[in-house]
Computed example of a mutant assay.
Amino acid sequence: MIKTLFCGWLFCFLTLGNVSALEFYTEDFPPYNYMEGKELKGIGPNIIRELSKEVGEEPKITVLPWARAYKYAQEIPEVGIFSIVRTPKREDVFHWVGPLYTVRIGLYAEKANKHLYQGTNEENLDQARKVGNIAVQLGGAGEELLTTLRFQNLNKIVNVNKAMFLLLKGRYDLLETSDAYMSYMAKEEGISVDVVSEIALIGQYDMYLAFSKSTPLEVVQKWQDALDRLRQRQSVGNPS
């Protein structure tokens, strides 16, 4: 009897010991996900923390350069990545939970060059195809979106935190990014956001938490259900 109980307890212990917590990857890209000292802050982590409480799990979050985080999220079983744009090319690569929030993505020029872009949005996009280089995040959604729009003058960068500074220094002709990023970085640099101008809109896109394809669908659904509950409570608490 005692031997049977001991074996049963040992089996449970070993089983539980082999259960690994979920791991999520994200990037240092303010104001969405960024490190401030040793603390991960931003819109994305705040939502993920709320979701974690709702789900009853606390995933390990690792901050990596985007290209590496994206690679790991495809190759490592049962992991998640946020905040990620759900593009046609990525649709079948992941399981999706969201949307978490929406971003506005455009092409930005130094204010002194704004006069070069005085046409319609399509005309300004066409003008942008002719410049020397447009900075885009390596492996980011902007690279895919602009390639789809027939852009061939893309300068793929890793360190997005210096992108606005380098745009103002003339290293890039244009920068693909979001209005929220521009506002945040202008504040960080202690300059007016008016020193740059959006010369063309690429679009507005929903951001998601994505799980690797090996993740069980019941896990994905659990996180989606948690998000739906949070949204429902927010809707009830903030009637229009």
Score class of each variant (00 low, 15 high):
Met1Ala: 14
Lys3Phe: 14
Cys7His: 12
Gly8Arg: 08
Trp9Val: 15
Leu10Gly: 03
Leu10Ile: 14
Phe11Tyr: 15
Leu14Gly: 13
Leu16Met: 11
Tyr25Asn: 10
Thr26Ile: 10
Asp28Thr: 01
Pro30Arg: 05
Tyr32His: 11
Met35Asp: 03
Met35Gly: 04
Gly37Asp: 09
Gly37Leu: 13
Glu39Arg: 14
Leu40Phe: 04
Lys41Asn: 07
Gly42Ala: 04
Pro45Trp: 12
Asn46Cys: 02
Lys53Ile: 03
Glu54Met: 10
Val55Met: 08
Val55Arg: 03
Glu57Trp: 05
Glu58Ser: 15
Pro59Gln: 09
Lys60Glu: 15
Lys60Thr: 15
Val63His: 11
Leu64Arg: 13
Pro65Asp: 06
Trp66Ile: 08
Ala69Arg: 06
Lys71Ala: 09
Ile76Asp: 05
Pro77Leu: 06
Glu78Ile: 12
Glu78Met: 11
Gly80Leu: 05
Ile84Pro: 00
Thr87Asp: 01
Thr87Gly: 03
Lys89Ile: 05
Lys89Arg: 09
Glu91Gly: 01
Val93Glu: 12
Val93Ile: 14
His95Met: 04
Ile105Lys: 07
Glu110Trp: 07
Lys111Asn: 10
Lys111Gln: 13
Asn113Arg: 15
Gln118Cys: 07
Gly119Arg: 06
Glu123Gly: 03
Asp126Lys: 13
Gln127Ser: 09
Ala128Gln: 05
Arg129Gln: 12
Val131Arg: 01
Gly132Pro: 09
Gly132Cys: 06
Gln137Thr: 07
Leu138Tyr: 12
Gly140Gln: 09
Gly142Glu: 12
Glu144His: 01
Glu144Ala: 11
Leu146Ala: 04
Leu146Trp: 05
Leu149Gly: 00
Arg150His: 12
Phe151Trp: 01
Gln152Ala: 04
Gln152Tyr: 02
Leu154Gln: 00
Leu154Glu: 01
Asn159Lys: 14
Asn159Gln: 11
Asn159Tyr: 06
Lys162Gln: 13
Met164Ala: 12
Met164Ser: 07
Phe165Lys: 15
Lys169Tyr: 08
Lys169Trp: 07
Gly170Lys: 10
Arg171Pro: 09
Asp173Val: 07
Asp173Thr: 10
Leu174Arg: 01
Asp179Arg: 13
Ala180His: 11
Lys187Val: 11
Gly190Arg: 06
Gly190Pro: 00
Ser192Glu: 10
Ser197Gln: 14
Ile199Cys: 02
Ile199Tyr: 08
Leu201Arg: 07
Gly203Val: 01
Met207Asp: 05
Tyr208Gln: 07
Tyr208Val: 13
Phe211Glu: 09
Phe211Trp: 12
Lys213Leu: 15
Glu218Ser: 13
Gln224Trp: 07
Leu227Ala: 06
Asp228His: 08
Arg229Glu: 08
Leu230Gln: 05
Arg231Cys: 00
Arg231Gly: 00
Ser235Asp: 04
Val236Tyr: 07
Gly237Trp: 02
Gly237Ala: 15
Asn238Ile: 08
Pro239Tyr: 03
Pro239Ala: 08
